[in-house]
Amino acid sequence: MNRTMSIDDLRVVIAVANQGSFIAAAHRTHVPTSTVSRAVARFEEAVGVRLFQRTSRRVSLTHEGALLLERAAPLLEELGEVIGKLSDDSQVVAGRLRVTAPMVTGAGPIGAALMSFAEANPKVTVELSLSNAVVDLVESGIDLAFRGGPVEGADLIVQRIGSVPFAIGASRSFVQRELPRRKALDLGALESLPAIIAHPGFVWRFRREDGTVREVQPRARFCVNDPRVAVDAAARGLGLVRSPPDLLAAAGLVVLEPARDVGKPEGRDLFAVYPSRRLVPKRVTMAVEWVARALAGPESPRKRPARS
């Protein structure tokens, strides 16, 4: 006796019992009559008893069939209600959202966007951790990460959400001392003047008008992996710094224009990254969309109604 029973087959059996006909049950369940007949036969084989008496004119329940209908039909209805509630609950944006983001963008536009996301979705608890380190999302229990490109990982979903622009800056005293007569930074100045960089050997990338990229290795004067500290070092006159323009402006630094043949400082693509799994929580996908809209501007995500 085969003990493997299908819920779908049970639904068909109950439809036949309620309709009193294979044909009527087929109409009710929107499947061919032959499919109904096979489903009933499979279920009878699984339970090991005959559930229906069949004649050429009518279908009636056996004693066992009537008992099944009495006991199983309410349970099946209750199961449907439970599954429906689970489906409805999955559409509610709620739960804990653990996020990691880089120091500067996390404290800036990403952090601001996540704050407005939390305001619009009061059932979501956001835990934002700022770090430039690349952590294992699954091992660390992180739902969502924002990272600068490039991003690799076969087990990750990676979505570009925008880019961070960069500019070259220095303090006014540094410009007066090192660049008194220069209107633009040529290649020689970029390679010879002291600079604040992320780590020894770090290169600055410049994109020229023809689309080609030039890599320049500055002369390291001070190394630090936090852009905010790097800008502070430049404000003290220690050297050139490559940073987002808003940080340069906030520190009162002078933005220096590279020579035309050098190109423009290349920005850095920003990506949303989350573990690859079949069912991604709605709070994750909504947070990604929210931050992407905030970075794109000019429309504020506060103006968009929360989905619930």
Rank of each mutant, 00 (worst) to 15 (best):
I23E: 08
R228A: 08
L190E: 02
G267N: 10
G239W: 12
S308W: 12
A250D: 09
R11A: 13
Q19L: 13
A230S: 13
L69Y: 15
S56L: 07
V231R: 05
D186P: 11
P281G: 00
D226P: 07
Y274H: 14
R228H: 09
G297V: 06
P218Q: 12
G84D: 13
G201I: 00
G211W: 01
V262P: 09
L156P: 12
E77I: 14
A230P: 03
M1E: 01
L10K: 03
L86G: 15
I83F: 07
L76V: 10
L75C: 13
R307F: 15
P265W: 01
L248C: 09
G162F: 01
P74T: 02
V126L: 00
P32A: 10
M103N: 04
Q91M: 14
G65V: 05
V134T: 08
G201A: 02
R307K: 13
E215K: 05
E152T: 06
A195I: 05
D155A: 10
R302T: 06
S308R: 10
S243N: 12
S131T: 15
A15K: 01
P298E: 15
V104Y: 08
N132R: 08
V12F: 00
E139T: 11
R283A: 02
D210K: 02
F174K: 08
A170F: 03
E77F: 09
A72M: 07
L270G: 06
F117A: 13
A220C: 09
I157D: 08
L79F: 01
E191P: 08
